[in-house]
Amino acid sequence: MKVNFNLNNKKVSIDVDPMKRLLDILREDFGLLGTKEGCGEGECGACTVLMDGKPVTSCLVNACHLEGKTILTVEAIAKEPIGKLLIDCFDETNAVQCGFCFPGFLVSSYYFLISDGEQNLDKIKEALSGNICRCTGYQKIFESVMLACKKKQLYSHRFSLIHPVR
């Protein structure tokens, strides 16, 4: 099946099995290795990407879902201002341990920051509840996202120019 979609702000087109998982398409067809497979059942969130602006587990999305869609992976988000802000905050608190789940956490946190961004611990916990981390006990992850929300508010003028994620 031929599918056309927008991947990390570029139009792309591939011919693949309609049931091929987006996770495999990203890793095998586009060499985007930042998206990780932790469970293959949508339970761990290590493979989170944004599809049409919403976070999804790419292990449960298939080629057939992609026609006309916009996909953003960790590689692109890491270059966005809000993505960079989050990376700085995660870095500052030494939140990252093994790091295997973090691309997923980055994507989910990014979605939280652009869709809400309130410095509210309960909301942050909700927003990250589809991503499992086995190393950190989550405390430093919460701290980082709280910090990012605060900084985003403080320096909102800097982030006003980011192009909206559809």
């Binding site: 290795l33 992976t73 990252v96």
Partner: peptide
């Protein structure tokens, strides 16, 4: 800061 953090966060 952890030496490995940024590369991990960026998916590299």
């Amino acid at each position: 800061k952890k030496v490995d953090a940024r590369r991990k966060l960026e998916g590299k």
